[in-house]
Amino acid sequence: MADISRRKKRFTEQGVERLNYDPKVAPANGRLEIADELCPGLILRVTPKGAKSFSVIYKVVGEGGVTPAGRLLAGKQHRITLGTTPPLDLKTARERAREIMLAASQGRDVRRELIEASRKRHQNTFDATFERFIEQEIKPSISSWKNVERVLRLHVRPHWNEKRLHEIRRADIHEILDGLVTRGLTATGSEVRKHLSRFFNWAIERELIGENPILGLKRSDLGSNEEAGRALSDAELRFVWRSACRLGYPFGALFQLLILTGQRRNDWAHARPREIDFGNSALEIPTSRYKSRRDHIVPLSSAVLDVIKRVPACAPPNDFIFSSRDGRVPVSGFSRAKAALDSQAEELMNSEQTTLSLQNYRLHDFRVTCETRLANLGFNQEIRDAVL
């Protein structure tokens, strides 16, 4: 390694750009190395062919042992190559060098961390991660987990079996979906896209990958999935809302909250007053009753809060917000309530002599409607999944 202690220079962007290889001062190995006076440890290396690159040389505190007095000693010298210049500029190189030197002063070797991160990335094949995803994410949270596992196993796993996660690109996803559409399996393609969106969001959260390849993916050729339900039109939604106003407590307000927030039926049906945070305008659904391993926070708009404030107050031990038994148990009888809701909506349509007819839908379709409206507003799949 060159003796960098005798060759120092205060780097500037223009100076680095103009610097040329000088064989008169170059060491025997042929590579000229100059240290930055303003950033200790930062090195600029210039080869005989004129290629320039930044690196940082450092020693990790503690690697050299401990003195009898308890002082940590620095170990041997390490080097991390930061990159060639250009494109790496001097400002960025100094910032990275300082971060590495700071970590070394705290006993951390960034080089080892980078090696470990690289090792993990290369171990994260789709096949191995797929098994974790099913066991840790899908089985505990979805009763029909076997369907999710089957769809991905049949239509995705054969293509990406040993492929590393960080190598999967949007083009790879399109290739799978193109094949399904060509075979006339548009509904299956829609399912595959939905499950892959959840898979990659899960992988991002666990830092198994740095970028989400499905983020922003658009497929106008994928047909709607009947099992996933349908989105109600604005006109339909207006009549359903007015019908809910007529129903009154408990189902009228409950249906309105489902429309406004897009949450699952039982997220509101089993809600308790203590889960409403009026100060922060949020519903805090605990892990004990939510399909996840962490609490789910639902931001509440002023319209939602207005609906909640009109609901009769509950007092312990009667602490279910929506109940037909004085709050002792959560509300039930959704089928009859849904039928009454639709009947009221049809009556309103007939009274106003509209040609509109309320098509078949489920309460779950309020969630589908919410996601569709969010998509129309330009929110990407990751945000829509987080909301729902």
Rank of each mutant, 00 (worst) to 15 (best):
I142T: 05
R169L: 13
Q381N: 14
N266H: 13
T182P: 03
L32Y: 13
L356W: 00
G15E: 15
N266L: 09
A171G: 10
A337G: 11
E205C: 01
A339W: 01
R121L: 12
L114Q: 15
D342W: 02
D172H: 13
N201Q: 13
E33Y: 11
W160D: 00
D221N: 06
H78G: 01
N380T: 01
A26K: 03
R206F: 03
V16D: 00
L44Y: 07
E352S: 13
A69N: 09
N280Q: 14
A104F: 06
A103N: 06
E149H: 10
D36N: 09
A269D: 09
R206W: 04
S55M: 09
K194R: 15
I176Q: 11
F54V: 00
F239V: 07
F130K: 02
G216K: 04
M1S: 08
W268H: 05
G50I: 02
R98H: 03
F239C: 04
N225D: 15
G107F: 09
G83M: 02
S288I: 03
M1V: 03
E131W: 05
P23W: 07
L341K: 11
H195S: 01
E346D: 14
D89L: 04
I176L: 06
R294T: 12
A315D: 03
I100N: 01
R293L: 11
G50M: 08
L185Y: 14
P23V: 07
V66H: 06
M1N: 06
A97C: 15
V60E: 06
T186A: 14
D306R: 13
L348H: 05
E63Y: 12
I34Q: 08
A35K: 12
I173C: 09
K52L: 04
L358E: 00
I176M: 13
Q136L: 15
T355S: 14
K194D: 07
D365L: 05
K309E: 15
P330M: 08
L185P: 01
A28C: 03
V148D: 10
A313N: 04
A271K: 01
P23G: 02
R157P: 00
N266S: 15
S357F: 10
N124G: 05
H166M: 00
G378E: 07
E37C: 06
R238E: 14
S332C: 12
A93W: 03
G64C: 09
N360Q: 10
A69F: 05
E382H: 09
I138E: 02
F320C: 05
L356T: 00
H195R: 14
A386N: 10
F126M: 05
A171M: 11
R170G: 12
N280C: 10
E135P: 02
R362I: 07
Y249H: 15
G378V: 06
A244G: 11
T12K: 01
A253W: 10
R230H: 06
